[in-house]
Design a protein around this nucleic acid. Structure first.
Lengths: 139, 139
DNA sequence: AAAATGTATTAGTAGGATTAATACAATTTG
DNA sequence: CAAATTGTATTAATCCTACTAATACATTTT
């Protein structure tokens, strides 16, 4: 029972995200280490009194972020520690760049729709390349 | 009858945004010029067969973006000539920035869907500047 | 004062996000 | 191999937010 997770009842955050955040945090804090096994989805679900699917969704997100590796029948395990915090830090940098870019676009008079069109056009250039990852597309 | 606005019935875009976009565009194209008066909210609403509040919201957005000036009792007028003719050079700079940003995101392992998710979230934050209306921020 | 205009408040509606119910698939274990 | 354990997939119910509507109010013009 290495896991200490608490769900805030009246929180604005969805439950699956609360689980995701707390596990992420505990990995970052070193309370969970590579190879550690997370509770089975049904077990954690029972403990938190939520639906197993909600836990499964959190685990799925964790795997998507590279924080854990899941093997059906075996369990869900903390993965390599190298992919952890830097990822989140990078994402917040990317968010800032998006804000800045959108702000510039708005300033020259573009509407949200026009900005989105531009973005989608550029993104489609890259979509071919990320086929290599994209087998777990369940959002 | 200076205004030519069409509402797409099955569009994904909300009506108020369609109105906003089309008026913006007509300003950019020079079909509407500083000082021109927009139709009264009730008149345009009747013409488009939508609720007056929907038109009012579009006008409100336009004012928020600095494109028009509204005076209760008088009407709504085109204001600022700054945002005409969206600058193509600027747009190509923005395209470059998008490429660069997407490239960075892909490099840290994000999928196209994840990048789009981030982008949409930041964009919606920008569109959510409706707060100048009233302080009914009761959420 | 009356008419014309935009504004504010409240309520109803639709669609997406979240969670739940249930069945399925893969792995482990005795 | 068979049963138990684990994660996955599919579908439905629920909840929440954004949008639209109905109505009353405020300001300016005439």
């Amino acid at each position: 029972m290495p896991l200490w997770i608490q769900i805030a009842p009246g929180s604005k955050q969805p439950v699956y995200k609360q689980i995701f955040d707390q596990v992420s945090q505990q990995i970052a804090q070193g309370k969970l280490n590579t190879g550690d096994k997370l509770p089975a989805v049904r077990n954690l679900a029972a403990e938190l009194v939520v639906n197993p699917n909600t836990v499964a969704r959190a685990y799925s997100l964790l795997e998507q972020k590279g924080l854990v590796i899941t093997k059906t029948g075996a369990g869900t395990f903390i993965s390599d520690p190298k992919l952890k915090d830097p990822d989140m830090q990078q994402i917040s940098i990317i968010n800032d760049r998006f804000d800045n870019l959108i702000s510039q676009a708005v300033n020259i008079g573009m509407t949200g729709e026009q900005i989105r069109e531009l973005f989608e056009k550029r993104l489609s250039q890259f979509n071919k390349l990320d086929d290599i990852h994209g087998d777990k597309t369940n959002d």
